[in-house]
């Protein structure tokens, strides 16, 4: 059976399905930002943006853009009814202080010890883009990662140990890829879900870390 890996929206939708009502959630830049589009409007999930927005709503209509209201990707957004604003120090107090039920980040690599690498491709790379990822990764109650299962060249990104500079140690709880959903447990990665047609053996071939069946 042919398998069709999920596209960016497919991964975002897979993640969105698992976010329950009532959670305070920060979505990182890239695929994670798309997750909000797949949380039904009648499910009250509160999205936090690092630039001080609590209750980020969907994109505005083109004729209703508020130039003073953006998210952490500097994209124009709306504010949900009930939303509020804080300054940057309080916004990161929310992130660092354990007030986020969930943070969803993109990554270059994750490892079976829960490490995440998402800010630099090598220690020598001069241009580094840490942004708020380190504060979010260590502070949220749970960190989920959404990313392609392998690199474009087919190299594994689900590792025994990260090869890129770390963002944080031992914090990843779950990974959504274009092939599978993996939970991180004390024993390592447990396969929670796979796309249709995927087998544990075929998934293991694309994964450096050892996979356990769910």
């Amino acid at each position: 059976m042919d398998i069709t890996p999920l596209d960016r929206n497919g991964m975002a939708a897979w993640c969105a399905r698992d976010i329950p009502e009532g959670w305070l959630v920060n979505l990182g830049i890239g695929i994670p930002t798309l997750v909000a589009d797949f949380v039904p409007a009648d499910r009250e999930v509160i999205f936090h943006a690092e630039n001080g927005v609590i209750g980020v709503g969907p994109a505005p209509a083109p004729d209703a853009i508020n130039p003073f209201l953006i998210n952490a990707s500097t994209t124009h957004v709306t504010l949900r009814t009930g939303g509020s604003y804080v300054h940057h120090a309080d916004s990161f107090a929310i992130a660092r202080g354990g007030h986020l039920d969930l943070c969803v980040l993109g990554a270059f690599e994750v490892a079976e010890n829960g490490d995440i690498a998402n800010w630099a491709r090598s220690a020598d790379e001069p241009v580094k883009q840490v942004g708020g990822a380190m504060d979010l990764a260590i502070g949220a109650q749970r960190l989920w990662v959404v990313m392609e299962h392998t690199t474009r060249e087919g190299e594994p990104r689900i590792r025994q140990r990260c090869t890129y500079p770390l963002t944080a140690k031992g914090v990843v709880k779950r990974v959504y890829t274009n092939l599978a959903v993996l939970d991180l447990t004390a024993h390592g990665f447990v396969v929670r879900d796979m796309i249709p047609g995927m087998t544990l053996e075929a998934l293991q071939e694309r994964t450096e870390a050892r996979l356990l069946s769910g």
């Binding site: 690092e50 300054h87 990161f92 992130a95 942004g131 708020g132 504060d135 979010l136 502070g139």
Partner: peptide
């Protein structure tokens, strides 16, 4: 390069 939250807190 400073993590964004650390930057805000250092100024605070």
């Amino acid at each position: 390069i400073i993590p964004q939250g650390t930057m805000a807190e250092r100024m605070r």
